[in-house]
Structure formats: structure tokens, C-alpha cells
Design a protein around this nucleic acid. Sequence first.
DNA 1: TTGAAAGCGCTAACAA
DNA 2: TTGTTAGCGCTTTCAA
Lengths: 327, 327
Amino acid sequence: MATIQEVAKKAGVSVATVSRVLNDHTTVAEKTKIKVEQAIKELNYEPSVLGRNLRTSESKLLLVLIPSISNPFYSEIINGIEETALTKGYNILLCETDSNPARETIYFNLVRSKLADGIISMDPTINKVKLNELAANYPIIQCSEYDQDGAIAYVAINNELAAYHAVKHLIKLGHKKIALVNSDERFLYARERRQGYEKALKEFNIPVQKQFIYNTKDVGFEDGQQAMKKLLDQDNRPTAVFAVSDILAIGVMKQIHTSGLQVPNDIALIGFDKISFSNMTHPTLTTISQPMFKMGAMAATMMIDKLQGKSIESVVLEHELIIREST
Amino acid sequence: MATIQEVAKKAGVSVATVSRVLNDHTTVAEKTKIKVEQAIKELNYEPSVLGRNLRTSESKLLLVLIPSISNPFYSEIINGIEETALTKGYNILLCETDSNPARETIYFNLVRSKLADGIISMDPTINKVKLNELAANYPIIQCSEYDQDGAIAYVAINNELAAYHAVKHLIKLGHKKIALVNSDERFLYARERRQGYEKALKEFNIPVQKQFIYNTKDVGFEDGQQAMKKLLDQDNRPTAVFAVSDILAIGVMKQIHTSGLQVPNDIALIGFDKISFSNMTHPTLTTISQPMFKMGAMAATMMIDKLQGKSIESVVLEHELIIREST
DNA sequence: TTGAAAGCGCTAACAA
DNA sequence: TTGTTAGCGCTTTCAA
């Protein structure tokens, strides 16, 4: 690979001039510029990002932290991040933490060691203390899940309100025995969605019953299945289920079918996220739509603004109830 | 952030010695080493990857090219790549091409400009000519989809044999009217799987009928739905369907259900890939399992071996027929 | 409008 | 066992 020196030599100018052409400085004579561009083409020259990075001490790389790449909820958000980042000249370094603290440390150090300019975190399992420590010195944006107590900017939806809407929809349909399949309540979104669930019940004078609330350990299909199995095993069965993610809901639906029951006739079901799969189940899944692409795009924009020294503020985006066949 | 100079000053040694401690050179006296490590700790020093990269002219970054992050088939492969890469000190730069040539160019230049050490490509839509050009100067591994004519190393399965197994399974079940829902045959895997399909039919003296073969434009659920709609609209309906991906198969299943028919009683169905969702449909999906994690791990190992100057060879991994409820 | 030269943070060849 | 020093490829200040 040719270097800037070789280009300079070939064009008969100094490296400084080549650099100026590369970076679109206006102070280069048209004639010189043409000479340099000619040399660049002939040598098939591509400027080394490494040299540039060292000099400018920025990498134009954004770290995106997710717990698992297999979760389709994150795919759309990443699409949004990538779209925005690319058009602004940034690339993204996708990092799966697997909820593993060792990996977390590796990724945090990538920012400390200047390999990445900032972190967009979507990982609810992340160590909040360390994240806040890091945020004191490096740009960090939280997306979807955030730390209530910290000072880190975030983009998210109103989870409590969204859950409230979901449950209210079930209540309006006449349901009184409504189960909640929630994930681990150490996650903020899980706590908030539970609050929304309880708020809706209380508003309609339906008692909140512990036996109708199930917390899963993880957020896979199987966890939804397991939850529904427990819920169906008891004497007092729910007539409707609100699952806090579509993946859980699909597991729930699977278990309902396996038990020989029908959705929505025997049990109504509502999910959360509007992942693309949710439209492929039979029946299709009623769900809460999160503006995932927009969330990602917004997070990337905030990050780049911050990198450019602009001041930024947290954003709460709108959700939407998508009524389909499962309710 | 502290630099190596500051550490050297604090420890009362030269920067070279600090560098030696950092890189585990054995020629450092234990006493000196302790002094340096002490200084590193006190200053909270983290070596700049940028400086190191420039000097060693390697970035320890691997570019992973996929057409779309939303396709769960790639998730597991990426898991495998990441697992291997991380343990060997590499990070991965995940790049979604969206089958967009402009993005392709951006990503190719990332290697030319030394920001990444090599490319693992899983993109069937990639420009083969440009990829082969690049491969002349930079390390490239193909994963899953590869170029038959080129000289680039790959890791894949035997698609023809796998498709043959799938269709033979349907034939053994007594089916004679077997449809093929294939993707665009400009992709190698699509051509190979079609060959396997035809081979199985011919072996059992079943005529290959054009009306039973449908090629989708894209590889989403909707394409599977659409394909099955066409297949059901004709007078002579198939009694079994082989879809070349689980996602297509799930779309097919959806359409069968929508039409009031049952799987597998009215129409048997087999997919391909064994994505996690294939176990969540009702009925569960019979499919061909690809060793996705292993493919990813293997691709990463090959890449790193190549980077270290070792010679590498293409690998064909085993597939497996997973019989579940849809057949 | 252009060139000379310093220096970003690091590694490694060479010398001591 | 350690230090001195050149230099990786680039950008940018200063001077011309």
C-alpha cells in the first residue's frame, strides 16, 4: 500500500499538500489539486486510518454494547445506529457482553485505550457503577435500558405507560384474570412494566394477585414456555397474558397450544416490542411497538453530537399498541 | 489519560522498559517490573491501541460482513466468530452491507486503510470480482457462502447433500408432490440446494416439475408466505414443501395455516438452518441443522492463522437432519 | 499557496 | 538488563 510520502513524491509536492487535498482544505490551487489526485489514483492510494487516528486521537469508531446478538429486538435498533453512524463517517464496533463482566471490562478498555470514541449501551445487565465511572471521562449514551440514578443521557420509551396501555387493552376486552409474564426485575424496564400492569389493574379495581405474576430468569422462548406452564398448572387459570417481550409471548403461545388451548379464545395474549416474528405466529401477536430504528438513530445522533461538543438531552419516544389476532 | 512517557517518568525508567513490561518481555528484572506496574496502577494507565496499531501496523480488528443483522441465521455464526476472536485478542467490526455496493466499498476500504486486519464475509450478495481483487492483497475468509471460481478459502457445508437428505426424508414419508421454495439462484447455496432437490427426486423416479419450484426474491417471512400462496393457488397442490431456509419455511407454514390447512397432515414441511425460532412454531419445524457456531469459530481460527502466516485450507462441515413435528 | 518540521503513543533495533 | 533513538503515517503549525 502506498503511503502519503509516495503520493507526495509522485505529485512533486510535500506531504502537507497531499494531506490538504485529502481533507478538502480550500487553500490548495486547483492545478496542484489535480496533480495530487492524479498521483493518488495512479498509486491506488488509500489514506491509513491508523496514522490519522493517532494524530487526531479519534477513531471514528462507536462501540455498541448488547447482551446478545440473537435477540431480534436489538437488530432493528442496530440498524438505526448503523444508518446514522455511517452517513456521519463513523463505524460501529458491535460488542456482545453475554452479560459477562470480563467482556464488559475488555470493551470498556477499548474506549480507555482510544480504540473507540464512545459507547452506546443497550445492555440492561451492565455494571452501572463502572458505567457511570466511565461516563465521567468518556461519551456514553444509553439506549432502551438506562440507569435511573445516574447522569448518563438515554433514549427510551415510557415503559410504565406502554405496559399500562397493553393491560388496559386486555381489560377493555373484558378480561379480569390477567397474568404478567415478566423478566427479572433487577432490570428497570421490568420494574416499570410491572408498575404499568398494576396501575391498570388498580384503575379498574382488579386485585393484583401474586399467583398471576411470573418472573423469568432469562428472556428466551423457553422462559416464556416455562412461565406459561406454571401459570396453567394452577387451579385458577388466567384468561389473558401480558408478556413483557414478544419472545416471551411466543413461548407463552407455544405452551398454550401445546396444552390444547386456543389463542385468543381460551387465553388472550399480548407481547411487547413488535419484532418481525410477531407477525408470523398463528395467530399473529398483538403487541406494543417500540420505535426501534428511530431509537437507534437517535442514540447515534446524540453520541455524535456529544463527540462534537454539543450538549445533549435524554429523549423519551412514543410507543404504539398494535392490535392483531391474539387478543 | 496517561501516556507511556508519564509512566516511564513516574517509575524512573525509560519508555522502552515500560513497553517491555506491557508486552511481557522476559528481559525485565523483577524489581523493575514491579516498579513499572506500580506506576501503571497509580496513573490508571491504559496503553493506547492507536499508537500500538500504527507501530505494528495491525489493528487486531476483524471485519465481519453480513447482508443483514436481522437474519437469525447469522447470529449464531457471529457468536462463534466472536468467541474465538476474543480469546485470541481480536475484536470484530460487524458490518451490514444491506446488499448495498456503496457500503461494500466503504468496508473494503477499511481493510485497505489498515483499520481492519482481514475480512470474514458471509454475504452472498457481495461483488465477487472485487472480493477476489481484495483477496490478492488482504486476508479474506468466506463463511457459509463462497465463490466457486475464486481462490478464497471458505468454511461451508455440503449444501447439495444436505438438500438431498431433506428431500429424501420427505420421499421416504411417501410424498411424491414435493415443492421447492428456493431463494434467488444467483446465490450458490440456492443453486446447490436445488441440485440436491432434483437429485433426490430423480433417484426415486419422481419427475421434476417446474410448477412445484418457486424462487423468492428475498429471504424474509413474507417471501415464504407469497411462495406458498402461489403454490396453493394452482390446481395441482404439493403434499410437501422443502424451503431452503427456516425463515421461508415459517412464512410457508403461516400461509398454510391461513388457508385453513394443517401441517403436517395436509402438507408436510421441512426447513433449513435450525434457527432457534424453528422450535417455537406450532407444529415445530423439521429442519437441517447447520453447525453455525462451529462455522463461525472455524472461520475466525482460519483468519487468525492466516494473519499469523500459517497456510490454511477450506473446510466443509457436517450437517444434520432434525426431525420434528412438521413432517 | 506551499513546504518544513514537530509530534501523536507506541515498539524494536541497536548500543551500552 | 536497560536506555537511546528511529520511525510507523498522518495532520497541523509556522514560516516563507
